[in-house]
Amino acid sequence: MTSRRNMLKSAVLAGGAGIVGATALGSLGAEAAFGATSPQVEPGTPDPDFAEGRIRSIKGNTLLVLGSNMVFHNIRVVDGTSLWKLGPVGFEQAQPGDGLYARGVRMPDGVLAAESVWLNIVNIKGHIRNITSDKLHLDHNGKEILCHVVPGRSVAVHSDAPASADLSSLRVSQHVQILGAWRPGTNEVDIATVFSPH
């Protein structure tokens, strides 16, 4: 699996990397991709192969990102990069203002050659305050997050049962975990998955 990292490095160093949403290296969403050998990072410290922040601008295939700790990152999207925004998306879906997490390979010039970029992804826990036909009102640490059900996209996972598009069994006051995509500048989230213990 080290070949994936090497291929990413090669793609960036060669300077010929195109911008595509799918990957020529295979599906980076596959679990196997995360078995890749990469340098161990000292526990408790920042991982140089990881970046977090919000997109300030986009130049060619590079995302200019300002980290929440005020450190800038140049994140290069290459042929092997997978992008997620409520689901797998193409590079054109990345927009200034989006929040992101990215993992890849840090190049000698400081650029992060991205294996994966997760746009606006949030994974929040809380209890359901209210349910309407297309929204869940989630109390997350005392703040209300408005969670939108997206037809054809949102699913519920009840413990180890298969994911279901039927969210009707969710109940007010129930504790859940919601994985979704934040709507920048709001307290609203589009739901990808609701995890429910029962």
Binding site: L28, G29, A33, F50, Y101, A192
Partner: peptide, 15 residues
């Protein structure tokens, strides 16, 4: 943390 979880699984898996 996201940095740690993304070493062993995609963040989009959630759990």
């Amino acid at each position: 943390t996201p940095a740690a979880y993304s070493k062993i699984a995609s963040l989009s898996t959630g759990l």
